[in-house]
Simulated scan of single mutants.
Amino acid sequence: MFDPTIFDNLKVVLEGEIYDRDLDQEIIILDRTDIVNLSDMSRMYRIKFAEKKGTAIASVEFQLFMSHKQMYSEWKQDFKEAGCDIKMIFAWPKDLSGCKEWTESSIKRIWGEEVLISHETRRTTSHSGITVVQYLVYLEFDRMINEDNALDLESMVSYALETIRILPAI
């Protein structure tokens, strides 16, 4: 019989929460990727969505990752080293780099002071000369998560929606 890993269990919880909100027509799922990397024996699950109401200009991507070391630790029953990393990438189709301090303080009001935040403004020019600007905010945590944090994933999805709602107000 298949024994699901911490990654599998957290992926099911996260995916279920997001798909329930999609079924309720609160959000729209834009992309989903489930990767088993056989070269380094890692797993990654990414799911990207936007709010369905309004113009839905902002999106968020959840990334759940389990390295080969984390997976091996779980197989050895060494649960202090077993777990997953989770990261969110928020994207807005405009340059908000001038509002970096306000953005960070707004995000920390929602997510707490311990969240690690980084920013990037990406400009891509097409062959026809059209430039597309995208402002990205990366949220990471300085710890792994495991099944003990499964119920926190529901709150994280709610916090993510709150985050994409506040920044377009700039």
Rank of each mutant, 00 (worst) to 15 (best):
E154K: 14
L38K: 09
Q63S: 14
I86Y: 02
T33Y: 01
H119K: 08
E61K: 11
A56T: 04
T33R: 11
D24P: 09
K80I: 08
L30V: 00
S118F: 03
D152C: 15
L136K: 15
I18R: 00
A169C: 12
K80A: 05
T131K: 00
G112W: 01
K48I: 08
D22A: 13
R165M: 01
L116S: 15
A91S: 09
Q77G: 05
P4I: 06
S158G: 14
D142L: 10
V115Y: 00
D8T: 10
D148N: 12
M1A: 04
K108H: 07
D31H: 08
S118W: 03
P4Q: 11
I164Q: 12
A82P: 05
I89A: 09
V157P: 05
L151K: 12
Y45Q: 03
H127S: 15
T125V: 03
R123I: 13
S158L: 11
M1Q: 04
E120C: 12
F7R: 01
K11R: 10
D20F: 03
E104H: 12
D20T: 14
V157M: 02
M41C: 12
E147Y: 05
S106W: 04
I35E: 06
W102M: 12
K53N: 13
I110R: 03
S59C: 02
T124H: 15
I27K: 03
F7E: 07
R21E: 08
H68T: 11
K76N: 08
V133C: 09
I29N: 04
V13A: 04
N37L: 09
L96N: 04
M44H: 11
T163V: 00
R46H: 13
G112Q: 00
D95K: 03
I86S: 04
F7T: 12
N146K: 09
P168V: 07
V133D: 08
L116I: 14
I35N: 09
K80C: 10
M1P: 12
K108Y: 02
D152T: 02
E120D: 12
E26F: 09
Q63G: 10
F141P: 01
A160S: 15
E51S: 05
M44S: 15
S118V: 13
K100H: 08
W75H: 14
K87E: 10
F90W: 03
R109M: 06
I29E: 01
M71H: 14
I86M: 11
N149D: 14
V36T: 11
V115A: 06
I18W: 01
S126F: 02
A58L: 00
M1E: 09
S97Y: 00
Y138L: 15
D3Q: 13
D142I: 10
K87P: 03
S42C: 07
N9G: 08
R123V: 07
R109N: 13
Y19C: 12
Y19W: 14
E101C: 00
D20V: 14
E26N: 14
A150Y: 06
T5G: 05
V60N: 10
M71Q: 14
